[in-house]
Each structure stands twice: as structure tokens, then as C-alpha cells.
């Protein structure tokens, strides 16, 4: 191998090492990228308030909204006080969820919203929601948790039923015994 080839090889080596490091970074970049795509297409929802764009109430249409809940782990129970509601697009709606903590220590939880069909998340604008922040439920407490939302008037005509579902997770280290709490 002459010196020229050797130098060329070194240069090539550097380029390819940089390329593989970039791809390693790209693997991580896929995470925010994926979240961004989901955000733009409204697939997964960021846990923050939506901006209300269209406040025109469309009285000609009624959409059934189902309220569902999942309690991760067997500790507590989250449930919707109303199972479903017929609403007009553009109408301001408030519904209540309720959570009961039967244990003798307080628990902190975070709820994650989810929608069926998934693309419906684009059209449900949450103005206020208990899922925007962590909720601490004291020992034995039953707490009412409100959600305020509007269904965007742009919702496609073939959408008749939307499910709004919350899954509540325990926050790590969120348990405190009643003596301290």
C-alpha cells in the first residue's frame, strides 16, 4: 500500500465514522421527529391546552362523544360521570371525571388522553383538562376532575362518534403515606 492510498483510506475512514455517528444521532432524532409529525398530524396529543380557532356553533350536526377511562394498575379507579354525550360542533362542553383513591396513602398521577378514531384528536380542542398537570389524590379521597373542550366545526362529515379516553398512570415516587401527607 503506498502512502497516497494510505492517506485516502484514512480520509475515507474519517468520513464513514462521522456518517455512522450522525446516524446514531439520527436514531435519537427520530424521537422528537416522530413527536413533531404526530403533533402536526394531530395523532398524539401534547399535554397542553389547544387554541380555539373556530367558535361557530354548527347546530345542524350532532356528534356522539364517548368518555372512557383506564386506570393503570389496580390501585385506583378513574371513571367518567357521564358515559356519553351528544354535542354540536363548536359548542363549549364541560364533563366531569371522578377518581377514587381507596388506599391509606396519597398518590400522584398523570393522565394521558387518547382518541378513537385517532385522527379525531385534531378536532377535539381541550381548553382545560385535568390531564394538563399531575393530580395528587389524598388517601381515601374522591376527587372530581373536569375537562372542558370544543369540537372543531371543521370535523369531517363522516365523523359521528368520537371516543375521548384517559389513562391515568401513577407518577414514580408519587406515593406518600398519610402520616406525612
Amino acid at each position: 500500500m503506498n502512502n497516497e492510498t494510505r492517506a485516502n483510506n484514512r480520509l475515507m475512514l474519517k468520513k464513514l465514522v462521522v456518517m455512522s455517528l450522525l446516524m446514531f444521532g439520527f436514531g435519537y432524532l427520530l424521537v422528537p421527529l416522530y413527536e413533531k409529525i404526530c403533533d402536526v398530524t394531530g395523532l398524539n396529543q401534547v399535554v397542553k391546552a389547544d387554541e380555539l380557532v373556530n367558535t361557530q356553533v354548527d347546530n345542524s350536526r350532532l356528534i356522539t362523544v364517548e368518555f372512557d377511562s383506564n386506570s393503570r394498575g389496580g390501585l385506583w379507579r378513574l371513571s367518567a360521570l357521564e358515559k356519553k354525550k351528544k354535542v354540536h360542533p363548536g359548542e363549549l362542553i364541560e364533563v366531569m371525571y371522578e377518581i377514587h383513591n381507596p388506599s391509606d396513602f396519597s398518590v400522584t398521577g398523570q393522565a394521558i388522553p387518547s382518541y378513537g378514531p385517532t385522527y379525531a384528536s385534531k378536532y377535539i380542542k381541550k381548553l382545560d383538562c385535568f390531564c394538563f398537570k399531575q393530580q395528587e389524590i389524598l388517601a381515601g379521597e374522591t376527587k372530581k376532575l373536569p375537562v372542558v373542550f370544543v369540537i372543531d366545526s371543521d370535523v369531517p362529515l363522516d365523523v359521528h362518534t368520537i371516543t375521548l379516553s384517559f389513562t391515568i398512570f401513577e407518577v414514580e415516587g408519587g406515593r406518600t403515606s398519610s402520616a406525612e401527607g
Binding site: 464513514l16 456518517m19 446516524m23 446514531f24 439520527f26
Partner: peptide
């Protein structure tokens, strides 16, 4: 060269999810 690092990234994320919160 293009995809092995991405796999390395994916399993590293799994590892940190498992042990580093």
C-alpha cells in the same frame, strides 16, 4: 453504516428506559 447506529440507538433507549428512568 446507515442503519446499525440506529439500532444501537434504539437498544440504548431501551437500556436507559430500563435503568435510568
Amino acid at each position: 453504516i446507515a442503519v446499525m447506529p440506529v439500532l444501537a440507538g434504539a437498544v440504548t433507549m431501551t437500556l436507559t428506559d430500563r435503568h435510568f428512568g
